[in-house]
Write a protein that binds this DNA or RNA. Structure first.
Lengths: 183, 183
DNA sequence: CTTTCGTTGTTCATTTCTCAACAAAAGCAG
DNA sequence: CTGCTTTTGTTGAGAAATGAACAACGAAAG
């Protein structure tokens, strides 16, 4: 509705992630966030109840932005299309500074965890279409695959994205297909 | 006073310079500026009477910001100190994208002109301390030197700053000293 | 020429943001 | 422990920004 709301929230969360890059979460003050966001301190309280709420909302918001970025003009996406994955990696690359912090900041495992959860939700759909023969439970399989994908993405970001999004998607697909044939 | 005023003005002017980089001044619309600045169209009119006023104020503001950047904690600066010049070049380098537009945009010679005027004002002080013997008038000398300096700065910016600020200042000083000895 | 469309500049009621002040809690020096 | 500073979370009055609407204008298209 009112663009000021979205703008303020965005500036505050950006400033917060920026500070998270430089100092420990507990060391960060509301005053510091407001200063960096170039916003009145009261405005922070207008949108977030406290530091911890700000963290939660930031994690949730940036996760959703990542999700939305690859769900553009997509109908029912029961399968993980190549295009969708490439869009996700591309988006990560474009906002690397933010997602590097969210993914790797020790003390803030929330984002990593929420992201794995989300990937697991999508991978479960795929796993349910597979015919497993060797007695592997589907939930174990889904858990294994999703944590692997999260780890791969984290590695890619930490290593400053040594491959293009296209290459990464291709690599990932190959690995998954090879494994799927094993089981 | 109110940080919203400064913030709005800044966002609008930034968006304006950004658009100036991509399209002709006459093609730029208030609506386009507001969109890019993520600001209501009415807000633009709250700070600037029209496009032309926005141009004027932008030129003046960014010139003053350049001047202020090198006048930090300086008392009476009758002579052009090395430090002062280095700060100026450093500031230009940090905000290259803006000043490249302002300096080189054909159709907008205002900034170039105002900058030369300003440099001339300072160089005049120096020239008045020189003892000219070969019948060269001081005003001619000042004009010649200031337009030279402006040209040199423009060249440096256009060529994507091939030398460090320190090197440039040193070069400039050497050239000027050599010339001053000639006359 | 007429119609359509986009831009301009202005108005107004409503909403958000700002600043300054405050008491209370937390952090930290001696 | 005891002051001292900083941070927190909240308040209220006032200022600025918002969206929506408007008439007027020019340009482009039919």
């Amino acid at each position: 509705m009112d663009r000021r709301i979205e703008r303020s929230r965005q500036m505050i969360m950006q400033a917060f992630i920026g500070l998270l890059e430089e100092q420990d979460f507990e060391k960060i003050t509301i005053q510091g966030i407001a200063d960096r966001a170039n916003v009145n301190r009261g405005t922070v309280y207008l949108h977030f109840t406290d530091k911890y709420d700000l963290l939660e909302q930031s994690v949730e918001t940036y996760l959703m932005m990542l999700v939305d970025s690859c769900l553009q003009e997509e109908g029912a996406a029961t399968e993980l299309s190549r295009e969708l994955l490439i869009r996700a990696f591309t988006y990560l690359k474009e906002h690397a500074s933010i997602y590097r912090v969210l993914m790797t900041n020790k003390g803030i495992p929330t984002f990593r965890h929420r992201m794995t959860q989300f990937i697991q939700g999508n991978i479960t759909v795929v796993v349910n279409y597979m015919n497993l023969e060797t007695g592997i439970h589907r939930d174990v399989m889904a858990q294994f695959l999703s944590i692997s994908v999260t780890g791969l993405i984290e590695w890619w970001i930490v290593e400053s994205m040594p491959y293009t999004p296209e290459e990464m998607v291709e690599q990932m697909t190959k690995i998954l297909e090879a494994r799927l044939q094993l089981w």
